[in-house]
Design a protein around this nucleic acid. Sequence first.
DNA 1: CCTCGAAACTTCGTATACAGAACGTCTCGT
DNA 2: ACGAGACGTTCTGTATACGAAGTTTCGAGG
Lengths: 236, 236
Amino acid sequence: MDATANGEKGLHARVLESLGPAITAGDHPPGTVLRTDELAERFDVSRTVIREAVRVLESMHLVASRRRVGVTVRPTEEWNVYDPRVIGWRLAGRDRPRQLRSLTVLRSAVEPVAAGLAARHATPAQCAALTEHAMGMVATSRGQQLDAYLVHDTAFHAVVLSASGNEMFARLAEVVAAVLTGRTQHHVMFTDPDPAAVTLHVQVAEAIRTGDAARAEALTRQITAGAMAELDVLAP
Amino acid sequence: MDATANGEKGLHARVLESLGPAITAGDHPPGTVLRTDELAERFDVSRTVIREAVRVLESMHLVASRRRVGVTVRPTEEWNVYDPRVIGWRLAGRDRPRQLRSLTVLRSAVEPVAAGLAARHATPAQCAALTEHAMGMVATSRGQQLDAYLVHDTAFHAVVLSASGNEMFARLAEVVAAVLTGRTQHHVMFTDPDPAAVTLHVQVAEAIRTGDAARAEALTRQITAGAMAELDVLAP
DNA sequence: CCTCGAAACTTCGTATACAGAACGTCTCGT
DNA sequence: ACGAGACGTTCTGTATACGAAGTTTCGAGG
């Protein structure tokens, strides 16, 4: 929603969108020191703007600002890897494979449990949305309609995560969306989705609708297992 | 001007530590409009400092800053609930029960998978640490040594998450620590830990050491199931 | 009377200048 | 050689001015 509408979003945001990816991509390896004056000159903005950008970077634990020494890039292990912006930057950068793998593993842990909870908590409206998107996936699963398929796939998983009733799960929707989008971008228009996966989605929708938590969880586990298997092809 | 050594940290951090909890606790309900001038006066700092704090709040998606209208508090569903600081604030505030429940559910999804991965990836050093902490838990499980027990318990789970080899899992260590600490604080020195749970930890350490992923996962699932069961007692 | 549009006002956004504090480094004295 | 203190660099905070943008209001025209 808010992300990357780079028209004129504020100077500090532009600095952030340039500095952040540079750091996460490793252009400034951990330990590198950046000085605010230098940055101000490099981006041709005032120090005030730089300081605001640095504050945000600091809140992501990407950098630490200390007097006399400068703004130092923190080691990778300390980064706030759950920050959607950090995820986006890493996904766009050079360790995209690693990030994709991490996120897929996270998916494989969270989504089955979320599906199980959804089977117990989903509202009728959510169940309806689920079956609708599952049908949509079926309808678009053949004949080079990957974009339309992706929309339904993303929406399906978002509804499941939301229906789980757990806010932490719900907030992973955009992460899952990023993973699914990434996969589609690599399939680039050549192979239709796996029919077995489509069937699984339909069955998950049904299991959630009928309140069969164990079945919803097991089926979703099969879906994520498939995603894990695909990973070896996608990520080197 | 007051020139007293008011705080060790920066001014903006102090504003943040006051504004953040206020927002997450609901003192400023979603939709509330805050003006930078007003905040500057309220905290007796310059607008620059306020704006830096607001930037960080904005990066957490707690607020949105718009011209002419002010800084508006965003709806709860949009908050970055994975930001450690947001978690901490909510854990300290009035919807602590909800947060505790969310985190425990997240634990129950992630930790079993992490344990399974740890069984395949753990280094000998990590295995040693695991058995050490498991033994420590055994040693401190009786006789009102809850503090020492908590240290070993926390360390145990941190090692498991780290040994999974997944950076996203590893970063959940502090979250798990927060949950475990919260639990201990409520048990307040009256009941010793459940012996069955202690045994499970020892068995998990063994399963990971012997590379039995399925067993490590199943056992950890029992541990988290226990935590979920406890939850009904702890969180209203 | 209603609608459309422009001006004005309010608030955030950016730039600049300066004072203060902290931390590394360099030098000097023992 | 080694430690303590002075120094300089760089971040931190403050104050102020101007610009931009949106909301609101007021007025003109239909």
